[in-house]
């Protein structure tokens, strides 16, 4: 999909509606560990936002606070101008969580019926089962469903209230490739109807392909926030990959423009803002061979912005 500038999307979709998410300075500590550290996040109605970050970056903790499942130590969260709990009670926001348990002794359909009974207005049960791709297994016991089918069931439950904001924590875990593609098509369709979607994922290609905007977290802070193109540009430069016999790592690290060096098997990977100069140096001053030069992708940004020791 094309990466649309976020502000333009928001302006055309919802000129007067309140912000889907307005979080300011939210902080949460567990003991001595500051899981989320003064995060500000503003999401306009209709945006699709990917939440990226390594394990322990604070994504799930942030999502818990957005949903009112845990209370920030400080800072405030507002969902469509309401407290998270009020937004859930009115059916404005729903979520597919990694940890949401299901009752094994209910059928798929009963689980959705039960959930539907808790809201004032819902979409028809059969409609959400169909959209989640589990209409044909409605009478199956949840305990007999595969992990992917249970994940689709959670998705069906989240669709019931036709929420203005849908929050998804690792939504495609356990799904096969076809399942993932169908899932994202359903999400894109919803976004066209004005639904705001936030999803945490560790599949970089999903973030790249389906999000209007990428928010990158590390150590409880947001380290990058923008369209996929903007975020990719943050890791400017290229990677030079070469086999360098008796490489002088210290000298290469000190070479102008070089930001990092990594050994991978017999090859050395060097990130640099001046790949031409480095290549020239490798060819003329060393015995380097098998030299490849590649532009940075989202994965490089992810690694460079979230790895240990990088500046935050």
């Amino acid at each position: 999909m094309e990466t649309t500038p976020q502000l333009a999307t928001a302006a055309t979709d919802a000129p007067a509606s309140p912000l889907a998410i307005a979080a300011s300075g939210i902080t949460k500590s567990f003991g001595d560990v500051r899981a989320v550290d003064a995060v500000d996040l503003t999401v306009h109605a209709g945006e699709i936002v990917a939440f990226l970050g390594p394990n322990g970056a604070g994504k799930t903790t942030t999502i818990d606070m957005l949903l009112g499942l845990s209370k920030p130590d400080s800072g405030s969260v507002s969902i469509f101008g309401r407290s998270p709990r009020a937004a859930i009670a009115e059916g404005f926001v729903s979520a597919v969580l990694q940890t949401g348990g299901l009752l094994k002794d209910l059928t798929v359909r009963e689980t959705v019926q039960l959930t539907a009974s808790l809201f004032t207005q819902t979409r028809p049960v059969d409609e959400v089962l169909e959209r989640a791709g589990i209409l044909d297994i409605g009478s199956r016991m949840v305990g007999k469903c595969s992990g992917g089918q249970q994940q689709r069931l959670r998705f069906a439950m989240a669709l019931l209230s036709d929420p203005g904001l849908l929050i998804l924590d690792e939504p495609t875990t356990g799904m096969d490739v076809t399942g993932r593609r169908d899932f994202w098509n359903a999400i894109r369709e919803d976004a066209a109807r004005g639904r705001t979607v936030i999803f945490a994922t560790h599949y970089l290609d999903e973030a790249d392909a389906y999000a209007d905007r990428i928010v990158l977290m590390r150590h409880g802070r947001i380290v990058a926030d923008g369209s996929a193109t903007e975020v990719k540009n943050l890791a400017s430069g290229r990677t030079v990959r070469a086999v360098i016999p008796e490489a002088d790592v210290a000298a290469l690290a000190a070479f102008p423009g070089v930001s990092s060096i990594e050994s991978r098997g017999s090859a050395t990977l060097i990130s640099t803002s001046d790949s031409d100069a480095l290549a020239r140096h490798l060819f003329t001053r060393t015995d380097a061979h098998d030299v490849e030069i590649t532009a940075h992708g989202l994965e490089d940004v992810f690694i460079s912005l979230t790895s240990e020791g990088s500046a935050s």
Binding site: L118, R131, G133, G164, G194
Partner: peptide, 29 residues
């Protein structure tokens, strides 16, 4: 997953209400 049930003109509504009795109901029971 189907594409037939929701059209792009069918906007997500932001008009909602809260269920009475903390959502206690007989279907759940």
């Amino acid at each position: 997953m189907s594409t037939s049930t929701a059209s792009a003109t069918d906007r997500v509504s932001l008009e909602r209400s809260v269920p009475p009795l903390g959502a206690f109901n007989l279907t759940f029971l």
